[in-house]
Every structure is written in C-alpha cells, then in structure tokens.
Amino acid sequence: MTTEKTANQRGAARLAAVQALYQMDIGGTALADVLAEYEVYRLGKEVDGDTYLKADPAWFRAIVTGVVKDQKTLDPMIAGAISEGWTLSRLDSTLRAILRAGVLEIVSKPDVPTAVIVTEYVEIATAFFEGEEGKLVHAVLDRIARRERGQPKGN
C-alpha cells in the first residue's frame, strides 16, 4: 500500500511538474515563483473547483529545478531523438515540457525503471493530446533511454 501511495504521489508530481514547466515556458514565470505557487497553493489543494492530486513535493521540485538547471543538456538530447525535419522549437510547449521532464528522470533517476518513466509521461501526453503525441513521447524517451542507460529497445 505504501508503494502504491508513493507511486501515485510521484505520478501526480510528474503531472504538476509538466504543468509548472509549461507555465514557465509560456508565461515566463520565474522558477522560485512557480515552485512556491505549486507547493503552497496547488499540490493537493482545490483551485477554481479542480482538486489537484496530492503530490510528492520533493519529486515535483527535483523535476522542475532539474529541468531548469539542465535544460542546455536536455534540449540537444531531445532534438537528437526527434524525427528528422523536426526541431524542439516546433513542438507544442506542453510536449516540450513532457519530454524535458521525462529525459531529466531518465538521466538523473537511475533507480526509477525506464518503463515506469516512459509509461508515466506517455499517459500525461495522452491526457493532454488526442493525436500521435503519446507515440512521439514514447519513441523519444525510448531512444534516449537506450542511449543513456544502455538498454535494449522497449525496456
């Protein structure tokens, strides 16, 4: 039961991190401001009639701060894994946030199984998009995981 609770809180933290990264990308919100807003007013709280899931605040903070700190390393990795003819700047802001967060976890959280990371971020993508974005997230994260973690395809 504790593992499930922790996993659910990490999943909620991943979703909140993607939302926070999107907010920073679109609105230019500063890192400290977005962290404070989510940790004080959103994570596990009701906002405008919507209840945010209880999230692991440390996991949320690690993803958001890690993406901001390592974006100059993450973006070229993502760009190298996207289909030829596409650039990172051509992708939707939400999709960029999903990929950045997913890649950060692949490179900085070796204790988390690749399949968990890929599945969680594909689920986030399919929650936001109705098209092929989930497949794109799966393909990009899988390529990067194989390169970074030395794993065979699909693991």
Score class of each variant (00 low, 15 high):
Met1Ala: 15
Thr2Gln: 13
Thr3Arg: 14
Lys5Asp: 12
Asn8Thr: 08
Asn8Lys: 15
Gly11Ser: 10
Gln19Glu: 09
Ala20Glu: 03
Met24Ile: 09
Asp25Ile: 01
Ile26Val: 15
Gly28Lys: 08
Thr29Met: 13
Leu31Gly: 03
Asp33Gln: 11
Ala36Cys: 05
Glu37Asn: 13
Glu37Ile: 09
Glu39Gly: 07
Val40Glu: 12
Lys45Pro: 00
Glu46His: 06
Val47Gly: 04
Val47Trp: 12
Gly49Leu: 06
Asp50Thr: 14
Leu53Ser: 14
Lys54Thr: 15
Ala55Asp: 02
Trp59Lys: 06
Phe60Asp: 01
Phe60Ser: 03
Ala62His: 07
Val67Arg: 02
Lys69Ser: 10
Lys69Val: 08
Gln71Tyr: 10
Gln71Trp: 09
Leu74His: 06
Asp75Met: 11
Asp75Tyr: 11
Pro76Gln: 12
Met77Thr: 05
Met77Lys: 15
Met77Leu: 15
Ile78Ala: 04
Ile78Thr: 05
Ala79Trp: 08
Ile82Val: 15
Ile82Trp: 07
Ser83Ala: 14
Gly85Trp: 10
Trp86Ala: 12
Thr87Ile: 08
Thr87Ser: 15
Leu91Trp: 05
Asp92Arg: 13
Arg96Gly: 06
Arg96Glu: 06
Leu99Ile: 04
Arg100Val: 00
Arg100Ile: 00
Ala101Lys: 02
Gly102His: 06
Gly102Glu: 04
Glu105Phe: 04
Ile106Ser: 01
Ala115Tyr: 14
Val118Lys: 01
Glu120Cys: 04
Tyr121Ile: 01
Ile124Thr: 04
Ala125Pro: 00
Ala127His: 14
Phe129Val: 00
Glu130Leu: 12
Gly134Ser: 07
His138Gln: 14
Leu141Pro: 00
Leu141Ala: 08
Asp142Gln: 13
Glu148Gln: 13
Gly150Ala: 08
Lys153Asp: 15
